[in-house]
Design a protein around this nucleic acid. Sequence first.
DNA 1: GATGAATGAGACTTCATTCAT
DNA 2: GATGAATGAAGTCTCATTCAT
Lengths: 202, 202, 202, 202
Amino acid sequence: MGDKVYSEKQIAIFNAIIELMKNGINPYSIKVSDIAEAAGIGKGTIYDYFNSKEEAISEAILYSVAKEIEYGYSRIKSQDSFKEKFYELLYMIAEKSADNVSTFNMLLSIGEISKLYEFLLDEKYDLSEYVYMANQIIKHILKAGIEEGIISTTESIPYQIIVTNSLIMGFSQYIRQKDLYPHVSLEETIEMCYKAVVKVLN
Amino acid sequence: MGDKVYSEKQIAIFNAIIELMKNGINPYSIKVSDIAEAAGIGKGTIYDYFNSKEEAISEAILYSVAKEIEYGYSRIKSQDSFKEKFYELLYMIAEKSADNVSTFNMLLSIGEISKLYEFLLDEKYDLSEYVYMANQIIKHILKAGIEEGIISTTESIPYQIIVTNSLIMGFSQYIRQKDLYPHVSLEETIEMCYKAVVKVLN
Amino acid sequence: MGDKVYSEKQIAIFNAIIELMKNGINPYSIKVSDIAEAAGIGKGTIYDYFNSKEEAISEAILYSVAKEIEYGYSRIKSQDSFKEKFYELLYMIAEKSADNVSTFNMLLSIGEISKLYEFLLDEKYDLSEYVYMANQIIKHILKAGIEEGIISTTESIPYQIIVTNSLIMGFSQYIRQKDLYPHVSLEETIEMCYKAVVKVLN
Amino acid sequence: MGDKVYSEKQIAIFNAIIELMKNGINPYSIKVSDIAEAAGIGKGTIYDYFNSKEEAISEAILYSVAKEIEYGYSRIKSQDSFKEKFYELLYMIAEKSADNVSTFNMLLSIGEISKLYEFLLDEKYDLSEYVYMANQIIKHILKAGIEEGIISTTESIPYQIIVTNSLIMGFSQYIRQKDLYPHVSLEETIEMCYKAVVKVLN
DNA sequence: GATGAATGAGACTTCATTCAT
DNA sequence: GATGAATGAAGTCTCATTCAT
């Protein structure tokens, strides 16, 4: 994680691609000329750093996921209690939900990345590292809950992870469909989610 | 729902598109010639029934979602108890998880359809009907749970729906990433999910 | 002239094509489906009577030209004096100038028909008959002028025809560009044209 | 007039289109691949300089008309007397009559350009400038005739223009149908035309 | 005889990629 | 190293023509 070194130009290209996606452009609809313009470089330059448009987009997505996972993990680690850590995660998800393509969300459902962009299925991209990291974050949060006695050790670790993951993903969906369900505030939703996790795992 | 009438040819085109998507072809990557070949018709024929490729694909997706929702609802209704209804839903999700694009999954996160295919954002496609139906299914299942005394009425309806929805979506994700988490069987996962819902809403 | 016999259906097709052209549709832009709809028949029927769209349109144009020449000739013959005959011709041209494609105008410049529709260049279409007829009309009018002593016999017949033809074509252009030159009335223009012919040939 | 600046590539494309038209290809029948081949460029390049095939052809026609009007005007201006100017115009028309589509002829009947290619009717193309220029040329020639006392000032300017225009157009038609009227030489026809103008307007 | 649903050749256009500058 | 003009493969879509009914 984070062991890959990218040149300044590559990072400019990544940021351009991520910006386009956040603005609602589907990765399949992104044109090389869009990327070049957004990055403030010539079209040809992209091919000096990547072998194809698909490679550039694929690596941009992975770069973004990695960065967001690291950033998220650090923010969560900086919190002290189980409740604070859990709330921090949900707040981050809510913050990112404005982005049309939140790579942060993928943190929770890495397997879905390839639904976003089929070229990520290529075997040259190893997603397992990200799955591992995402699990680590959940484990880290749960560990705090267990230490604080909020979460019991009766249930198996996989059970705890699956259930927690589910509720977080459910929260994420809910937030993104806010316009479909306008009656409940963000605060209330976060409280509901926390309450449900505690109840299920206490 | 189901009030739209399609000609035989249109349905053949829909089935061809759905088949392609189930085989893992991204809607953005589908070519008109693919559809024609899969439907066993000429390319031009598609334009006798739809104004553009995008329209054909958009309507195919909606057709599939509508059909699956109806089919799923009927299967769930045919079950007698809360547990049977809930299990039936999870079994269906598991069955469909082999399809690369399970429109059934969209039942649970209709808002995500437009992430699958941006052209569905066009205002001529009204997705609210599907959102409503999806909610109806969850309500129908929960109602059985309440009547059987398995689910308490302490919590608000929105809370119950959000939490149930979350856990089902979480289950769906889990199933689809089976290869990433090979240690737990399908049966066990279904049981876990049911157990969690009961615990959180009892 | 007029010795070709057409079936009712063929004439319906001709009329449909002529109608479309009068409504401003360029012969190159006419579609078989347009013709069928305008004629109130099925597309396939057109191919029962013509070998191709081009043949149908080509023959429709020639049919229209022949009909208009005959009609024009008869109207001019029915007039008694040189001036009446000449005015009758100009009136007819003015009447037809509303038609986007006046086949009547072609009477005067048959050679231009093939500019209208290149397929008329095919050697199977003999336009010389029409050229002959157009010349006959001019000769007929001039003959009256000579008999009445309005036109002198000093100049050669070709000279008389060329000059008369030129002035008539000029009139026709002028009428069709009425919106570009709005200051002169139709009556005045007709008078000018007549006056010029008389002056040049007296 | 002549104030539009075109790139070298655009002019190459214009020349290719004009060449095709001079070779007898109807503008409606011109294919993008024809243009590309004739211009010695790739098909895609055309779309770097024009938004559509129709735009390229429309602008090519206008470019050609503008260039020919300017060229023609300069040639006529360089002549000293009325007769020389008039003869120069008729010679030019005769020279150009070999071109299947003489944009020079349009100089005399600009309103007909849109009959040649309907896309020129688009309001983004302003043809009035060309109409004005064409009139200027006729006025310039007539002015010389008046100054030399060959043309009287008895008749109104519009009358003079209409009649002159008509006789020139008539000449142009005649020349182009040379094969239909083989008995009169070019020299004789030019003389006839000049003689008629002088007689009508003296 | 008449039809119009179906076809597929062929046109227009886009855009990823190259390469001379 | 960087560029963007140029390319042409490949895709969408149209429409003349066919042929089963």
